[in-house]
Design a protein around this nucleic acid. Structure first.
Lengths: 330, 330
DNA sequence: AAGAGGCAAGAGAGCGCTCTCTCACCGCGC
DNA sequence: GCGCGGTGAGAGAGCGCTCTCTTGCCTCTT
């Protein structure tokens, strides 16, 4: 019933504990014959190292924390962003033989718990996802001395190394495209303005519009479909004559399409719509959505790579380009 | 630089290690005055227990494995099922002060890794998600003796305790609804037939149709939007005169709507469509989707509860009811 | 008043592993 | 022929914690 220990394997193989340890950990300085004997003993006993004992002495745990600071709305809605990042990070860490410990603090108490957990070195590193400006957690985690890398440009006071996509450039491309299509009154539905993705996409929009001396018109959303619909209603009320909308996420664009349909506006004839993300659903809306594709998985992979390579605090952030995908909504 | 240990706290408080341990673990048999002194020492030193050392002696780790046996397609597509379950499980375990270790084996090597990990008691329990009939992992995990609970009825040889929704009943309700609407040629788009959700929803469909002596017409999907679109194309080819479709997931229903639109069929005038899940997106399709609502989060919560309560192998499965939500697609 | 009984705190033995240090033994050069 | 470096295996000291066992003290009973 009891699990075999190193001791048991050593006894069976007729060697010392230290030698078994060397074999199990792949040390080079071990006689091939002895190695074989030890491996057979390991096999026969079904020996599996006790990681608690190992961590106790090595001070490493083999697991990485993935901290998602996300208000309920987004994760509970069907935004595929979260799944995709989690999935990719998991896959990438699996390849490196690391475990993923998922932490989604849903209250201040939860945040304190995460902080204690990380400070207690239960993880060898931390990946931050979806940071908000007001979130005190990134700074707290950075203070623990545990390596931290952020997925997405951090907006909080703390500035860990990070990877992101070119949100500003993507937004610029979207708005330029609308201008090229001859649209004159271009509104935007923003993301949350305490997140870099929200801020940067708005900045790109403003930059292009102000370059042409046009008026900007924005309604604030939170990346969810519902907020997109509400923002669209708002925009139509503010400026019934608008002829284009740039939504900072595809989900919000979907909500906007819904609102426009209800308001009797035709897309793209009356109003052109551009989204951001290029989620699967963008190809299935009516009409299919023109959008800015961002390589979410690549960012996730880069984040893991940076973390595993040993974080360098002064490292330049890695920024991936975005790409405009033109479909029928513009 | 070095983290303080129990020893250090004991020295500072002028008591023994054992006493500090008692205080930290909330033992009742400790003098309130001494407790106060110890707590102050803990505070002053910023003491955080070393979990590796603790696990080493207690044989418990405080973490629960969430094993997702999912082919790439579903998790990579924007199916909110995965996010919602992960989110709910995480939240529920957080409340119980447990960590979530996420494991998404993406290869046989990954499966072996998960098995070793669990057999090595790195987790106190396992939650299985999205099991497939051919998957050998559930049986392997059960053999380790670690408590296992399944989210969704298991179809593999191994039969851990589980929670699920009434998939058969939900499918029945959907088809009965279509019949009540006067539909005569009702097709179905199934889920994967090696998963209980796929099998059971098909069974419910067949049951009602055969009860009325009608012919059944099925195309196999895999819960993704794309497969739904392809299955719909297939069905239209097989029986151009069909007047209703029951899709085993909302995502597939969305794909079906897309195909129907392309084929020039009006929904619901020519063809009525019912989905399954009631994801957010179902309210935003054109037309809004009639669907079977399933309480995904409640199932997830129940699974956690069973696991934490101490798994009883003979426990009756907990089955949650589903509910038909009628919108404009029927 | 003396022994029994109870309760709170300390002593110390591990939990299973890694890793340094030591030791034995080999071949080699001078 | 003797010492020397190099190599591979064993001995043993912890890593930080829990938990049993023991001890000491105080109260209660007869």
């Amino acid at each position: 019933m009891k699990r075999p220990t190193l001791e048991a394997v050593a006894a069976r193989a007729g060697v010392s504990r230290a030698t078994v340890s060397r074999v199990v950990n792949g040390s080079a300085t071990v006689n091939p014959q002895i190695r074989t004997v030890v491996l057979r003993a390991v096999e026969e006993l079904g020996y599996i190292p006790n990681s608690a004992a190992r961590s106790l002495v090595t001070q490493r745990t083999g697991s990485i924390g993935l901290v998602v600071s996300e208000p309920l709305a987004r994760v509970f809605s069907d935004d595929p962003f979260f799944s995709l990042v989690v999935r990719t990070v998991s896959q990438e860490l699996e390849a490196a033989d690391k475990q993923v410990v998922l932490m989604i603090p849903s209250s201040p108490a939860g945040q304190a718990r995460v902080e204690r957990y990380v400070a207690g070195r239960h993880v060898d590193g931390v990946i931050l996802l979806s940071q908000h400006g007001s979130d005190p957690l990134p700074a707290a985690l950075l203070r623990t001395g545990v390596p931290v890398v952020s997925h997405g440009r951090p907006v909080s006071a703390a500035k860990p190394p990070y990877c992101d996509v070119d949100n500003v450039g993507g937004a610029r491309a979207a708005v330029e495209h609308l201008l090229a299509r001859g649209r004159r009154r271009i509104a935007t539905i923003t993301g949350p303005l305490d997140m870099s993705a929200g801020l940067d996409r708005l900045a790109g929009y403003r930059e292009i519009l102000s370059g042409t001396g046009r008026r900007s018109l924005a309604a604030i959303g939170d990346f969810t479909r519902e907020s997109g619909a509400a923002a669209m209603d708002q925009l139509l009320e503010d400026d019934p004559g608008l002829d284009a909308v740039f939504a900072a996420s595809d989900l919000m664009a979907t909500g906007a399409l819904h609102s426009l349909r209800k308001a009797g506006r035709r897309v793209p004839d009356d109003v052109a719509v551009v989204g951001f993300d290029d989620i699967d659903a963008a190809r299935y809306t009516d009409p299919p959505l023109t959008t800015v594709r961002q390589p979410i998985a690549e960012v996730a992979r880069a984040v893991v790579r940076i973390l595993l390579a040993g974080v360098d605090d002064q490292a330049e952030p890695v920024i991936f380009p975005t790409e405009l995908v033109v479909r029928d909504s513009t």
